[in-house]
Design a protein around this nucleic acid. Sequence first.
DNA 1: CTGAAAGCGCTTACAG
DNA 2: CTGAAAGCGCTTACAG
Lengths: 362, 362
Amino acid sequence: MIPFHVGGSILVRLRREGTQAVTIADVARLAGVSTATVSRALSASAALRPETLALVEAAVARTGYMPNVAARTLRGRRSMVVLVVVPDIANPFFSGVLRGLEDELSQHGYGLLIGDIGPHNEKQAQIVGVVQAGQVDGVVLLNGHIPRKAGRDLTALGIPIVAVCEPIEKATFPQVEVRNHEAARQAGAHLAALGHRHVAYLGGPARNILERQRQAGFREGLAEAGCELQPGWIFLGDFTMASGALAARSFVMAVPRPTAVFAANDEMAIGFLKTIQAAGLRVPDDVSLIGFDGIEFADFVEPTLTTFRQPREALGRMGAGLLLRAMAGETIAPEEARVRLDAVLLDRDSTAAAPAPKALSR
Amino acid sequence: MIPFHVGGSILVRLRREGTQAVTIADVARLAGVSTATVSRALSASAALRPETLALVEAAVARTGYMPNVAARTLRGRRSMVVLVVVPDIANPFFSGVLRGLEDELSQHGYGLLIGDIGPHNEKQAQIVGVVQAGQVDGVVLLNGHIPRKAGRDLTALGIPIVAVCEPIEKATFPQVEVRNHEAARQAGAHLAALGHRHVAYLGGPARNILERQRQAGFREGLAEAGCELQPGWIFLGDFTMASGALAARSFVMAVPRPTAVFAANDEMAIGFLKTIQAAGLRVPDDVSLIGFDGIEFADFVEPTLTTFRQPREALGRMGAGLLLRAMAGETIAPEEARVRLDAVLLDRDSTAAAPAPKALSR
DNA sequence: CTGAAAGCGCTTACAG
DNA sequence: CTGAAAGCGCTTACAG
């Protein structure tokens, strides 16, 4: 922690080197009006005489005035900033969702504060702290959990919240998600229709909601085709390529070996793909593989990865829309509060008909 | 823009539903001291009697008090936030740099505000506006440009700035970069040593500083081995996989075809790799390929990509260290203001000895 | 339609 | 070592 007297020297530097910051008083003086009038001109919050408005606008232009955000936030009790809680900023999946959020929110004057919660639990308290400190007007949770601090969770603070991507089961705030169960069911049906009977599943952490939805859906799709997901053929990773690679090392030893695999995300699928290929297996000739998410890299591995494209930007945009309404004081009706979008199967080159039975012993 | 009267209703909601925010006055009352004493206890900016300190700490714990950030920023003239300007948040390369920045800065109590400048120039003005509005105490530029607004650039505001990754040539503020020229020279030498004489280059946008450094270094490395980069074998993309794929389509038509390619980043290399493989070329048997950056995906393509690993976290951490010193009012001596780190060659499977001459006509 | 004045929640000289 | 008071730069009832 930098001692505060050092802060004093920053002030000196800023004042010395930079231009002295223009305040609303400077603008008012130049325009020959009160600061109240300048404020009204800037916020368009009250009707002003066109001549007065012009006077203020000219003074703003001449001075290059920018309102001080801290003062505005303190007085106005709103920061015009939204906190986005991300589980892992390094996962390229989230950049699309962030873009959707940013597009929609910035159109309404809001900025984004990104909180990368990572694997560390201590960050949870930081998140709550940011809200308690009055830094944000709303929160978007992409992480599937309600952050808590010292026993109390975020919902107790009365700030508008929405969850996007990873739904939170018992929560009452609006949520936007993809039809994970449906898509995974389709993955099962698709593999079964290709003749696969020995099928494996590569999932995420056991308690993760996406993992639970996708595994359940996949099982259902297989079951409907008279197929069963055998316990020994379930590998759980952590959504990273490394964990996909790890699962692959067990997979290649399996006897008999499954002829198809559904991975709960693309990164694990890509780690898995590379590793079984290195072990001499061919995709899709020996093993069919389906991923989930539709990240750009899935299109640049060999073979291209069959996967489900999530409508990433739309997820972000719809989440932002709901949050904007909540921040405007609107109550979201329960039937509107749960938005579900489709994930679309991209049928590419990593899936094919199951090899003939004898191929298994080749 | 949401009209401000709506803001009023937010206030009402927060006050009604949430807990009334605890202020420093509440804590002072409970502890039986003045607000000044509470403030001093929290900032450790002055010596307090241990008993007084304990009183305040107990009151803070009882109330769950969190200082209001806007008030603190307004009064203290420092926001404890650093703005990081990123050219493209979707590029996984930056997440490592951001992590390094975040580690170092958060240890000193600073938060990060990420400005994704993207391809749009209008965002430049927004960046300057954030600084003018007093929202941040320092700026880290990862984008290779000094943002400007209405003719004036960021340096005119007297705020501490550092550049990381993409150096800015005429700038006088501290910069942290990788030895791009050296690494690229090594790429040229490496390919030449493997016997490659027909070599192509896949670069970034012509005016980009990394592109210029890497192309120049590569030429030098080739030249030292008596090799020349022919004009027809220079492809310029935009650092995306799609542009690498596009370049590959020209590449496969070339007669005679180069036997080796150096790409100025991994994403282009991966787009290129996939596309020439799809056209029937084998890597490294027909074509050797070197990338740059060392992103994680480079390890999961087939074959694994020979590339240069950038010390991403170190870049971020060193940039943060310099910025912290500048924000503390220190003047950075010129000899310290230009930090250069090594990029390390990861010699993996996408490079091999040049095929025998007749192989070209096979 | 516009202004004077209060006040948002802090920090920090200034006193003692 | 601690307190009373000023003031950071805005917005917004309240008046007129």
